[in-house]
Design a protein around this nucleic acid. Structure first.
Length: 462
RNA sequence: UCCUCAGUAGCUCAAUUGGCAGAGCAUGCGGCUGUUAACCGCAGGGUUGUAGGUUCAAGUCCUACCUGAGGAGCCA
């Protein structure tokens, strides 16, 4: 693989084979061709130097254009030219796959807009940017698994199909096998879901949290890492209908333990990106976002500020600048407020803790003041909220009160309530939008460009 | 879903107060070169997002729709 060759794992003079795709081909009738071959294993391509003594030089090598698949053999050599340490003095160049009609190949060796490349998402991965994103995304995913494994967390595969809409997180995708042209009806004229596949209404899950809480109260330290689905009509650079989420849950823990975990986790995966994908990160810093590397380095080195929600409000009220949305105790923080807190007020990552109960979910633990719940948001400079979490309400009576006061039905939560009846313990967890984390690390501005085939309203191509 | 902006060659973009549709890159051919965002020359490439309207004349003005982007809301 090219990554091993360019890393110097084989000495010059070794006979090597390279299998990959042509990036550029500069050929000279005078007798030599320079082919950049790329196999995706690292950022750089390797230069294959082809002499015109090869018997397929005229009719094949010179016709090679961007995208052609080739297998090259030859001797690894220290490069005579500038721009690379190693190159290959080719002895054979075998063309495995031609470009059908070079004029119609969508990925040309020039800059393309990200919007254009979304229309050719099956080919955009062959570009520098999307290759780098894919490798960094993998690095962050592997680091996530490694971090939790090393800290004795178990990976729990929570279901993607949810038979109740009790999770209360916005619009859901329906899962049904009913014949839409011939729907079974109840006597009242509604749709009779008892005829449906699961015998009741079913949806794609919007979170694994409620399920993972069950495992938490038996395995102590658990997490989910998988896809999640929201049918909200959100058309922004930060939203996908299908996205990946990391949700750890730990037993015998409070909100401070939760914040500690979030801090350690983020530092761990960001450090992995800096160390393991230095080549790709250097590219992002050069062409996508000048601060991609320095921002991460600062993040990894700084400890997080912890701020009470009430203190955050006070800081915002005393700020000399004006906000578009007025500040007072009880509001949810807008992104302009979040950016101010971490970028100007604290100048480092901030954990805002203990929010008013009115703006947070029913399962978050009621504090002794009766006004706030043990919720936290981790705010990152340059992005705003990157993690949201809470200590969960472990007291059955208080949980029931919260469910009822929000107009929800306690019977819908029967198994979730059982967890509070049978050996309940204080526990806490958080959710991280994995794709947003990839944006933060790479400096990519649009979440549709950090996931392989983005699903957004009106878009499920490929 | 709301607000704003945009849609012209394969791609990225020009085109003055409404007046002959242009460039760079890419592609093909030729030349040149241990080249590397290569360079030089030539060539092909267009129903200006769609449908109407105003006008002698519309890429340009008007209406509707479609598509995309940015912002907002919702959130992760």
């Amino acid at each position: 693989m090219i990554s091993a060759l360019l890393a110097g794992e084989r000495p010059a003079g070794t006979q090597v084979v390279v299998k990959g795709w042509v990036r550029t081909n500069r050929s000279s009738k005078a007798g030599i061709s320079f082919i950049q071959v790329h196999d995706g294993t690292c950022f750089d391509a390797i230069q294959v130097v082809v002499p015109n003594s090869l018997n397929n030089y005229d009719d094949e090598v010179q016709r090679l254009s961007a995208g052609c698949a080739v297998i090259c053999t030859g001797e690894l050599a220290e490069s005579q030219g500038k721009g690379q340490t190693f190159e290959i003095q080719a002895e054979t160049v075998e063309v495995i796959g031609w470009i059908d009609d070079p004029e119609t190949y969508p990925i040309t060796p020039k800059r393309h807009s990200f919007e254009y490349l979304r229309d050719v998402a099956h080919l955009r991965i062959r570009t520098n940017t999307f290759g780098a994103v894919a490798r960094v995304r993998d690095c962050l995913a592997q680091a996530t698994q490694r971090f939790f494994h090393e800290n004795k967390y178990f990976w729990v595969h929570t279901p993607l199909i949810s038979a109740s809409d009790a999770e209360g997180a916005g619009e859901l995708f329906r899962v049904s096998t009913l014949d839409m042209l011939n729907l079974p009806r109840t006597e009242e004229g509604g749709i009779d879901y008892s005829e449906d596949f699961f015998g009741k209404e079913a949806f794609l899950a919007v979170s694994g949290q409620l399920n993972v809480e069950s495992y938490c109260q038996a395995l102590t330290r658990v997490y989910t890492f998988g896809p999640t689905f929201r049918a909200e009509n959100s058309n922004t650079s930060r939203h996908l209908c299908e996205f990946w989420m990391v949700e750890p849950e730990l037993a015998f823990a409070d909100l401070n333990d939760d914040a500690d975990l979030a801090e350690q986790y983020l530092r761990y995966i960001f450090k992995a990106a800096l160390e393991e994908r230095a080549d790709d990160m250097a590219f992002f810093a050069k062409f996508i976002d000048k601060e991609a590397v320095t921002r991460l380095e600062a993040f990894v080195e700084s400890s997080f500020e912890r701020l009470e929600y009430g203190d955050a409000i006070t800081a915002l009220e005393r700020a000399k600048r004006k906000f578009e949305f007025p500040v007072k105790w009880g509001i949810d923080l807008q992104s302009e407020h979040e950016r101010f807190l971490c970028e100007e007020y604290c100048k480092r990552p901030v954990v805002v803790m203990n929010y008013p109960k009115e703006i947070k979910a029913f399962y978050m633990r009621m504090n002794d003041d009766g006004k706030t719940v043990a919720a936290m948001d981790v705010l990152a400079p340059g992005m705003g909220e990157i993690i949201g979490g809470s200590q969960r309400e472990e007291r059955l009576g208080v949980l029931d009160e919260r469910i009822t006061s929000l107009g929800l039905n306690v019977d819908d939560y029967w198994w979730y309530r059982d967890l509070r009846r049978f050996g309940t313990v204080p526990h806490a967890g958080f959710g991280l939008g994995f794709d947003r984390a990839v944006c933060y690390v790479t400096g990519m501005k649009n979440i549709r460009d950090v996931i392989p085939f983005p699903r957004t309203p009106k878009h499920a191509e490929f």
